[in-house]
Design a protein around this nucleic acid. Structure first.
Lengths: 239, 239
DNA sequence: TGGGCGAATATGTATAGACAAATACGCCGC
DNA sequence: GCGGCGTATTTGTCTATACATATTCGCCCA
């Protein structure tokens, strides 16, 4: 019945150009019309054209250089964006009932290996946690986490008996930098027992370290049993 | 000697606000001053303030709503951006000499499984390729690829005896949508032989499908041997 | 032929002003 | 107290203009 409201003009301009690029009419390196000629073509002011082109440049579809003009960008290297949600949400999406179980909790001075894992130079106190996450009856993830107590003092008094540390940290630590590392490893004795899989079976291991500013906050190692689980990401250049 | 030129004002404003947010002075949900008051604070026009806030909103640091104003955003779910380069560049970065070896090449009508892998409904012709990539003496990746010939007719006459198909496609197919799937699987007989690892050893499997517009272009399965390889990504919210 | 320098050109930043659109808030009537 | 409605507030879009800045192009001179 009611037509959707027309998009802003700068969006319309960007879409028109994007379509021509994605259709292959303009191959990589092909010049984009100058702002002046786009003003004439679309009958609008230069700021509006500028905003359209700025968006395309930010999306990586075009490059812009003073005096040289705008050109279709060479295909970027592919980048996959994987949403790594907190585990409860991840399982909830699959429909299975979620259950969390704390396996261990220890508060201690960080050993050499633990300092390395967190990227700490000097001595520090850490909270070491082990936990399992279940999707229905199946152990879905095995979690092995260190929390740097100097960075998150409030964690000291948390038992994490029922609250998953990932969720708790997300709502208590404001902003971080994160490093992710994904690898495949054979299950050791502990992982095999905890996940009810054979020793040596492949594990998808996601190791993540996060910082708040310059201060390491937490290092977590999530083990997903074998081929049951996959990280999936979709990527659209300039999408 | 020479000081760096001062950043544009809108960058300076954005940085000032970003600093306050990242320092935790303004927790999630905290209101950002209105554009009008930021105009006064920084002594500039509304468009300049708007541009600064727009950038922060795009980066996900703040949310903006008409009448309600701007607020510090709740921590987003974590997202990892993994650069997935073409394999040659990936190995070159590690310093080892790169070698490519084509194992097989077959041009045939797509079977049922191959159509499913590419996401094709009707009949189609595909080019099936098998290849190995070496870093020094070690087999680094096993590649198993399908190319949809209707989408990339030029591939029909390519032998891919010396040119890796990934690199060739990157420079011949303009823009695509890509789907990535990362999982851990045990090595089968073929993978074990090709990569010189034991059967059942963990493989990091990266499956990628790409489209050009609506048309499937290629489906590739890259098998990395076990714990030797890891995908690493860094992520900064609003960075 | 080659190198340097100036000018033309396209983008980058910023201003002031105007109107549009969404919506939170308070007023008013019940 | 409560529900509905008008309005003020805040952001979203757009115009017209001005000047800054980077870089290419071409001219001129050696």
């Amino acid at each position: 019945m009611n037509a959707t409201p027309p998009p802003p003009r700068y969006v319309a301009i960007a879409e028109a150009l994007r379509a021509r690029i994605l259709a292959g009419d303009w191959p990589p390196g092909h010049p984009i019309p100058t702002e002046a000629s786009l003003m004439a073509e679309f009958g609008c002011s230069r700021m509006t054209v500028y905003r359209a082109l700025w968006g395309l440049a930010e999306a990586g579809l075009i490059t812009r250089r003073r005096r040289a003009g705008s050109h279709v960008a060479a295909p970027r290297r592919e980048e996959a964006v994987f949403g790594i949600h907190d585990i409860e949400a991840e399982i909830a999406r699959s429909g299975a009932p979620y259950r969390y179980e704390r396996l261990s909790r220890a508060l201690r001075p960080a050993g050499r290996a633990e300092r390395a894992r967190l990227g700490l130079a000097g001595p520090a106190e850490v909270l070491a946690l082990g936990a399992r996450h279940f999707a229905g009856p199946r152990a879905f993830v095995l979690e092995d986490r260190l929390i740097h107590l100097a960075a998150v003092p409030a964690a000291r008094s948390e038992s994490f008996a029922t609250v998953p540390p990932g969720r708790w940290l997300l709502s208590h630590v404001p902003w971080n930098e994160a490093e992710h590392r994904i690898s495949a490893e054979p299950a050791g004795a502990f992982e095999a027992a905890a996940l009810a899989i054979p020793r040596g079976a492949p594990l998808l291991v996601l190791a993540r370290r996060t910082w708040s500013g310059e201060v390491p906050v937490t290092a977590v190692r999530l083990c997903y049993p074998g081929p049951d689980y996959a990280l999936v990401g979709r990527f659209r250049p300039g999408g």
